[in-house]
Structures are given as structure tokens and as C-alpha cells.
């Protein structure tokens, strides 16, 4: 078998995962942090974008649009901690080869490796996602625990309440294969 035929077969076999995807429907990215004495902090944005270069899927979150419910806290988060002027996005890259797309009507859950870029640092991470397929549409929910110290983010502190370094993130979106 010639190398050209082999290459052609590999491309054809991998078509389902190389297919370009586009976001459809609503999306959201949230984070939750904890502090002392049951203190909890949640932030949310709907500014989630999805890119597919055929090899990997790239999920980007616009950090400047994160809202926690308190304007002043949002400003501190943007300016003091995330420094969104310099680092406007959180970006997660996951190779398509690691992703298993479920059959129609099925749901799959998997933990895969990825690369997370945040606050100017890129770290290897493990993402747990659930994919539900309905026809050509997929509903994706991904959970990713992060440690703020890993990304050189100062631990948020305000009047004696300090957020713990471990935070949970959850991103959900819908997409379709082209």
C-alpha cells in the first residue's frame, strides 16, 4: 500500500472528528470559588467562542465579560487579579483525537488532557466533559478545576475574606458539525 493511499485512508477514517464545528445556541462559562466560613463566589459569562482547526478544538472565554453580581468586585477581578487588559481570554485547547463523539441519541462522558492558557500562563490540565448528541447537534458541558496559583494569579482578598486558590470552572455550549 502506497503512502498516499494510506494517508488518504487515514484522512477518510478520521473525517468525523476532523469535521469543522460551529457553535449553535446558548453558551456559558462559570467559575466558583470558595472562601472562609462558607463564603462562595460565582462568576458567569456567555461570551464563549469555539474554533476548530481540524486538529484541536479551541474554546475561548472573554474574561472581561465575567459577572459576579457585584460591580466593584467585577472591576477588582478584571483589573487586579485577571488583568484582562493584558490577558483578555481564557483559552482551552483539546485535541480532537482525544475526543469521542457519541452516536445519535447517545451521551458520553470522558476526561481528556488539554492545555489551558490563562493570565499569560499555559498549563496542562484535565477536562471532564459530557457530550450529548441529538441529530447533528451536540450539547457539551465541561468541568475543569483550576488553581489560581498555577497561573500566577494573586489570591483575591477583600476586607479579610480571601478566596481559596482552587476554583471550579464549568463551560457549556452547543455545536454542530459542518
Amino acid at each position: 500500500m502506497s503512502s498516499k493511499i494510506l494517508l488518504t485512508m487515514m484522512v477518510l477514517l478520521s473525517t468525523p472528528v476532523l469535521a469543522q464545528v460551529e457553535r449553535s445556541g446558548a453558551a456559558s462559562a462559570t467559575f466558583s470559588g470558595k472562601g472562609p466560613a462558607g463564603f462562595k463566589l460565582e462568576g458567569k459569562t456567555e461570551e464563549v467562542s469555539l474554533l476548530d482547526d481540524g486538529k484541536k478544538v479551541v474554546i475561548s472565554v472573554q474574561l472581561a465579560t465575567l459577572k459576579t453580581g457585584i460591580d466593584l468586585r467585577d472591576r477588582h477581578m478584571r483589573e487586579k487579579y485577571l488583568e484582562v487588559d493584558k490577558f483578555p481570554q481564557a483559552v482551552l485547547e483539546v485535541l480532537w483525537t482525544a475526543i469521542q463523539l457519541p452516536a445519535d441519541g447517545q451521551t458520553s462522558t470522558q476526561t481528556v488532557p488539554g492545555k489551558m492558557s490563562l493570565h499569560g500562563k499555559t498549563r496542562d490540565v484535565s477536562v471532564t466533559y459530557t457530550l450529548k448528541r441529538v441529530g447533528e447537534a451536540y450539547e457539551a458541558i465541561g468541568k475543569l478545576p483550576l488553581n489560581l496559583k498555577d497561573f500566577d494569579i494573586i489570591l483575591p482578598n477583600y476586607l479579610g475574606v480571601t478566596v481559596k486558590p482552587d476554583i471550579e470552572t464549568l463551560t457549556s455550549f452547543q455545536f454542530k458539525k459542518k
Binding site: 472562601g35 472562609p36 466560613a37 463566589l41 475574606v161
Partner: peptide
Amino acid sequence: RHGYSSCAACHADPSGSGLLTAY
């Protein structure tokens, strides 16, 4: 309403009421 289900960050009494913390 503001996501504060716990009282202890804002009150010295962990179950709420009374003296406020700086936060």
C-alpha cells in the same frame, strides 16, 4: 438574592444578625 446563602462572611455571628464584619 446576591448568592449569600451563608451569613458568616458578613456577620460575627455565624448564623447571622448583629455585629458586621468589615466585609
